[in-house]
């Protein structure tokens, strides 16, 4: 039975496709091909990480605060 596609459905579909394209671009940068069946899970995790990125980026740190690469507690 054919369904009726609403404008919202079209927008959601467009957003998913755009996200998939973004992920493909990111993956190419590290020579990784994301198989289609992995894509929904990878997108979900990227969205989760974006939330955490927004949190850490939201804190303004002094310029002399260095990364903790040589970390000693």
């Amino acid at each position: 039975m054919a369904g009726i596609r609403s404008d919202d459905d079209d927008k959601e579909r467009a957003a998913v496709l755009e996200m998939a394209r973004d992920v493909a671009v990111l993956a190419r940068q590290v020579d990784l091909v994301i198989p289609d069946d992995c894509l929904p899970g990878v997108i979900f995790n990227i969205e989760t990480l974006r939330g955490y990125v927004a949190l850490v980026d939201g804190l303004v740190l002094p310029d002399d605060c260095e990364p903790a690469f040589g970390y000693v507690p």
Binding site: V42, N45, V53, D57, L61, E66, A68
Partner: peptide, 23 residues
């Protein structure tokens, strides 16, 4: 899927996270 998403993170937030760690 979690590892793949992590591998795609850009450098800037990772460095910011390490700076936040020091702070």
């Amino acid at each position: 899927d979690r590892l793949m998403a992590g591998a795609l993170l850009p450098a800037s937030p990772i460095i910011q996270a390490h700076r936040l760690r020091n702070w």
